[in-house]
Amino acid sequence: MGIPRVLYQETKQDAWIVIILSGLILSFILLIMIYTLKKFNDKDLFQIHGILFGEIIGKIINTILILYFLSAFYSIMSEYIELVISWGNEGVYYWFPAFVLIVLSIYGVFGGVKVVAGICFITFWFTFWLILLLPLTFDHFIFERIAPIFNTPVVDIGQGMLKTTYSLLGFECILFIYPFVKDKTKVFRFTLLGIWFTLLLMLSLTIVSILFFSPNHLKHTIWPILNMMSIVRLPFIERFEYIAVSFWILIIYSNLTLFLWIASKGIKRVFKLRQKKGVYVSGILIFILSFVINDRDSTEKFSDFVNYFGFCLWICYPIFLFLITKVKKV
């Protein structure tokens, strides 16, 4: 939700170029990932680490992965709670939405991989229609705002790409879901489709925000998309963004269950705990965390850290992994 602003701060009106460039990079990374996965058929990344680096080092790396997914869970959740507390739920205790969302995700994960996939699939259709509202903001566009193009220094574009890539993270889940996919030949095609769909969505949202807001306004709006939605006025609903804020739960819900599922799977692999216990342990850990990191500053720092962490893990690390499999000739 906040992406257009972040990008705009870095690259001004050229943000859309950045998005396309990072899309290309991501596709390349994905290609490498799938290639590596194909080498070890029917293994997820946790098991691959065990094979490549041996028991102990593999476990250490897997623990890092688990920590990543738990912190990614928390960062998504805290960003949403931040949003919900500022829009219409002022004064709600921080731990309350955290508790509800954690319980909800635990309930989802308990259904197993099929239910998690189902949640991702169905919530997508439940939220997809929100995009259709964007054309309603058309009246307020000023097209000159996109021009002039190509006037951002290369360094800034690099910075922007860094930020885009980690907001596009999520495709790394394929490393863990891969063993459950029936038709392995289509994995690459559909994951690529997923990445480019997200990219296209982000592209259109960014362009719309650039056209909609004046430069200064956009720089100071934390959730530009939400602000745009308040323009949308239907005959029976005013202030549409309140509904959008609640529907946002569905979007993050699929992410939360997926991440929690991966984390608990990892806990099962590393610590030989039952997955159910892993889910409970992770839930409790995250809940405790919600008492520690719960104001605007610290959550922002935390999610910056998670983003950086994710960037290292899923953009740089796959290349390393790929090279190692090449060297070791698995």
Binding site: Y107, V245, I249, L250
Partner: peptide, 14 residues
């Protein structure tokens, strides 16, 4: 509020 309803929807869907 609406968030509660959506939480309900999530539970129901799951």
């Amino acid at each position: 509020g609406f968030n509660g309803i959506i939480i309900g929807v999530c539970f129901l869907l799951t």
